[in-house]
Every structure is written in structure tokens, then in C-alpha cells.
Simulated assay, not measured.
Amino acid sequence: MDFEERLAALAAKVKNQRAVIQTEEATKNAFIMPFISTILGYDVFNPLEVVPEFTADVGVKRGEKIDYAIMRDGEVQILIECKSSTSALSLEHASQLFRYFAVTNARIAVLTNGAVYNFYTDLDAPNRMDEKPFLVLDLADIDETLIPELLKLTKEVFDLDSIISAAEELKYVGALKREIAAQFREPSADWVKFFTTRVYEGAFTQKVREQFSSLVTKAAKQYLNEQVNDRLKTALGAAAAVPAPLSAGSAESITSQPVAEADLDRDTEIETTPEELEGYQIVKAIACGDVKPQRVTYRDAKSYFAVLLDDNNRRPVARLWFNGKKQKYLGTFDDAKVETKHAIETLDDIYEHADIIRATVRSYA
């Protein structure tokens, strides 16, 4: 497996097992040691590379231990402090990291609960660990833009200078993205006021704030949906504009009369509409959280448009019943492959059934 596949595999393991992993030691064994081994590439059984229960006495603090120290050429490079997968990470959990960071040569510190990995360095003051991470890896929602930076931390291509030079931008861009996401989920009073005063000329009273709180949230969600749909339309347009190359043999067969007549008969019975293709792209985008995009295909039929896994009729992902003149339906499947039709008004309504679609794909994968 390549790096991204290993990362996805570990993310799936965390998702499937996190509910039953209750202790810190279980978290280390199930999630964190595999992260050190399969993602960062270090041998957890080689004390020259990974030292568990690393001890470095600090002032009057004697015998304190950090969970793991990753070594390179006999020097500590990365310190890792672990918490139970049931714990939410906070600076209160990082007191030992702060102390050890100051007395070792480590420039990278990691605080993790096996699902979320907070990476710290010393941007604010030399040899003093920052209070805010420069990189946050959440295995439940992997930010693909961080993968190249994570690669720099692996044993094979470890590049400390490159990591540190990029850390400041990563730190603030990541923090801004998380803050924007939080504001989209639940806008603060300042966020609501910021936009309201740009579109509303009256006084920003309590009543106005209450009115625009819901409007700002609604507008933000609609804007995001429109951006997604615009990208899908652009992708569909590009796909339609590029004809598939034909070999000499296939060109000859297409010009033959029997094939042309068969194509004509087929095309008069089945019409693949842009709306069906757009719906397919939405289903495909949902499914791609669990499988590679090329595995999600489609076949159009007279009465419905089928989305399949691996172009296999025995692996239906969803069906689009768009041929009716009035009501449109999305067909989803349970574990027994029994179809349930859901009435939808717009293509955006497909996202409301994303969990069912992902569960169906996972059952095949």
C-alpha cells in the first residue's frame, strides 16, 4: 500500500474500533503504535528508533516518563504523549511535553488520543513548545492538504528544516480553517454582525441579530452547496468535451452498419440526462470517502439510472429514478440489497442520505 492507502486503512481501523478501546494502554497498542510504524515508518520494536517510556529528568521532577521518543542518529527528534481514545485533547494533557521539549533536542512534539494527532514545535520562543499545534491530523476527517507535510515526518524522508520552515504557515492556515468551519457550523455574534452590517443599513439591534443569525447560517450552507455543484458541473462539462480516443479497430467497427443500428435502437430507448450525470457525481463524491473514485461507475436503463461499485450489477450503490415527469426518487440499499426509494425535491437532497450510501459501499468493500 502507498502512504495515503495506509493512512486510510488506519483511519478505518480507528473508526471501527474506537468505541471499544477504553484505556490508554489499549489506545497505544491499537492505534498509536500502528501510526508510528505504518505511517511514520519507524520500527516500534527497535529501541534505537523508538524508545517507550522515555525518561529525561527535569529539575526537581524525577522519574517522569514520556510515552514515546523517536530517535534519529542517537538524538531525540520527536516526543509523543498519549491519552486514551475516549479523552478530548487539551493543553492540560501536555504538561510533560512542555517540560521534556525544553531539555531534549526534540523539535517536534505530538499529543494524541489515537484519533487526533496535534503536532507542536517552537515557533514562538526557541526551545519552548508552542501552545498551539502547527499541524492537526484528524483521522475521522483527513485534510488531504496536510499529507505532503506529514510525509516529511516519516523515517524515509525526514526533513526537519523543511518541516520547521513550513510550520508557521501551516499553524495559522490550519487554525483559520478550523475557525471558519466552526463559524459555518455555529456563527458567533461577531460573525453575524460582520455580515449583517454589510447588507443591512439599519441599527444592529438584538432583534436584528436574532433574525440574521439564522439567515447567515442558511446563506453559508447554500453558498457551500452551490460551490460543490459548480465544481461538479465543471467536471461534467470537461468530461463531455473530451472524446475518448479510438483505435483503428474500434473506429472500423463503429462505422459498420450493424453496430450503428444497434446504437440507434439503444439511444432511442435510453436517454442519459445531465441531471442524472450530476446526481451520479454527487453519489460518487459521497462514496469516494471509502473507495477510490474509479471504482464508482454507472449504467443507465430505461426506467432508472444505476450507480454501481466496480461496474458490477450485484453491487448497486444507489439508483436515480429521474425519468418520471413529476416526482424524483433516490433508491438506496440495505445489507440484503433491498431497495428503498426516497422522494427528493432537488439534487442537494441526495446528501441527506450520505450515511446510507457510505454504509452500502463499505459493505461491499
Results as ranks from 00 to 15, higher is better:
Ala175Ile: 10
Lys177Gly: 00
Ala140Leu: 11
Glu144Arg: 13
Glu186Asp: 12
Val157Asp: 03
Leu137Glu: 04
Ala182Glu: 11
Asp138Cys: 09
Val192His: 06
Glu179Ser: 07
Ala181Tyr: 01
Phe158Lys: 05
Ser162His: 11
Phe158Tyr: 15
Ser165Glu: 14
Leu176Ser: 05
Glu144Pro: 02
Glu149Gln: 12
Asp190Val: 13
Leu160Phe: 02
Leu135Ile: 09
Glu169Arg: 14
Pro148Phe: 03
Phe194His: 14
Leu150Thr: 10
Leu153Pro: 07
Lys193Glu: 13
Ala166Lys: 13
Lys193Ala: 12
Ala175Met: 11
Ile180Phe: 11
Glu168Val: 13
Arg185Ile: 10
Lys177Pro: 01
Asp161Met: 09
Glu169Tyr: 10
Leu170Met: 15
Trp191Val: 13
Ile163Cys: 04
Thr154Arg: 13
Leu151Phe: 01
Arg178Met: 08
Leu139Asp: 02
Thr154Lys: 08
Ala175Arg: 11
Val136Pro: 02
Leu139Pro: 06
Ile163Phe: 07
Leu160Tyr: 01
Ala167His: 08
Pro148Ala: 02
Leu150Gln: 03
Glu179Met: 05
Ser188Met: 09
Gly174Trp: 04
Asp141Lys: 14
Leu170Glu: 01
Leu135Gly: 01
Arg185Gly: 08
Lys177Met: 08
Lys177Asp: 07
Leu146Pro: 00
Leu139His: 04
Asp190Thr: 13
Leu146Ala: 09
Asp190Ser: 13
Ile180Ala: 11
Leu176Pro: 00
Ser188Phe: 06
Ala140Asp: 14
Gln183Asp: 02
Lys152Asp: 03
Ile142Gln: 02
Pro148Arg: 03
Glu144Val: 15
Ala181Ile: 10
Asp143Ile: 11
Ala189Met: 09
Ala181Trp: 00
Leu146Arg: 00
Arg178Phe: 02
Arg178Ile: 10
Arg178Asn: 05
Val173Trp: 01
Glu168Pro: 01
Ala189Glu: 13
Lys152Gln: 11
Glu179Val: 08
Leu146Tyr: 09
Lys177Trp: 00
Glu168Asp: 13
Leu151Ile: 14
Leu153Glu: 01
Val173Gln: 10
Pro187Trp: 04
Ser188Arg: 09
Leu153Trp: 03
Ala175His: 05
Ile147Asn: 02
Asp159Thr: 09
Arg185Gln: 12
Val136Cys: 09
Val192Gln: 04
Glu169Trp: 07
Asp141Gly: 05
Ile180Asp: 00
Asp161Arg: 12
Glu144Asn: 08
Gly174Leu: 04
Ala175Leu: 12
Glu149Gly: 00
Leu146Val: 11
Ala167Thr: 12
Pro187Asn: 06
Tyr172Thr: 14
Leu137Phe: 05
Leu170Ser: 06
Val157Met: 04
Asp141Ile: 06
Leu139Cys: 05
Lys171Met: 10
Glu149Ala: 11
Leu153Gly: 03
Glu169Ala: 13
Asp159Asn: 15
